[in-house]
Amino acid sequence: MSVDDRYFDGLFAGNDDPWAFRQRWYEQRKRAITLAALPRAHYRAIFEPGCANGELSFELASRCDRLLCCDTAATAAALARTRLGPFDHAEVRHSRLPADWPEEQFDLIVLSEIGYYLDAEDLKRLIQRAEQSLTADGQLLACHWRPPIDGCPLNARQVHELLHEQLPLARLVLHQEADFLLELWSREPRSVATLEGLR
């Protein structure tokens, strides 16, 4: 069973940064690696499900023409709206996935630290919706904490194995270390250097 909304509501009850995204060097560094892993300097439309309080969202906003974020916790969505206040092209929705998947098309979807909160069936549905939402040159980035998390139906390895099985896309980026695993898949299989005529 996917993790219940009450879990996330409890995390944000009286705490606007339950994972210490702003304070911890681990989180700051992971955000920098995530942003550096993006093969394009700029995207037309980015979707970030599970945006929490909007720290990564704030960085993504400067890399796109349109940013859509969502979170299943109402408090988190409200915090993200405040964080993204300076960006007119950013929108935050309070919604639960995969049921409330948006109808728009995106050339980048960022699944950061959310896959293991879903059970295998919900994650498969989410991956299917994500793949259907990608543009002809769309990309999907997934980044997940590798140690097991109490109460989560899946771990990072299982999440990324399902992504490999379900996504008919080329993998452009693989970054793995003791703490987290990051991969990026793309409908456009050519590398950055190739696209710039260097190969």
Rank of each mutant, 00 (worst) to 15 (best):
G54T: 03
L56K: 06
F58N: 10
S62A: 09
C64W: 00
C64Y: 00
L67W: 02
L68P: 02
C70P: 00
D71S: 10
T72A: 09
T72D: 01
A73G: 02
A74K: 11
L79D: 00
R83C: 08
L84I: 06
L84D: 04
G85Y: 08
P86N: 11
F87E: 07
D88W: 08
D88N: 13
A90V: 06
A90D: 04
A90C: 07
R93Y: 03
L97M: 15
P98S: 10
P102A: 10
E103H: 15
E104H: 15
Q105C: 08
F106L: 06
D107E: 01
V110R: 02
V110S: 10
V110Q: 02
E113P: 05
I114K: 00
Y116V: 01
Y117C: 02
L123Y: 09
L123V: 03
E131R: 04
E131T: 00
A136Y: 11
A136G: 08
G138D: 01
Q139T: 04
L140V: 14
L141W: 04
L141A: 12
L141T: 00
H144G: 14
W145E: 09
P148C: 13
P148E: 15
I149Q: 06
I149Y: 11
D150F: 12
D150M: 13
G151L: 10
G151H: 05
P153A: 05
N155T: 13
A156H: 12
H160Q: 15
H160V: 03
E161P: 02
L162A: 13
L163H: 00
H164F: 14
E165V: 11
L167S: 15
P168V: 15
P168C: 12
R171L: 14
L172R: 08
V173I: 14
V173Q: 03
V173N: 01
L174H: 08
H175I: 07
H175Y: 07
E177D: 15
E177F: 14
A178I: 04
F180T: 00
L181R: 04
R187V: 14
R187C: 12
P189S: 02
R190W: 07
S191V: 13
V192E: 04
V192K: 05
V192L: 09
L195D: 10
E196D: 12
G197A: 09
L198F: 08
L198R: 13
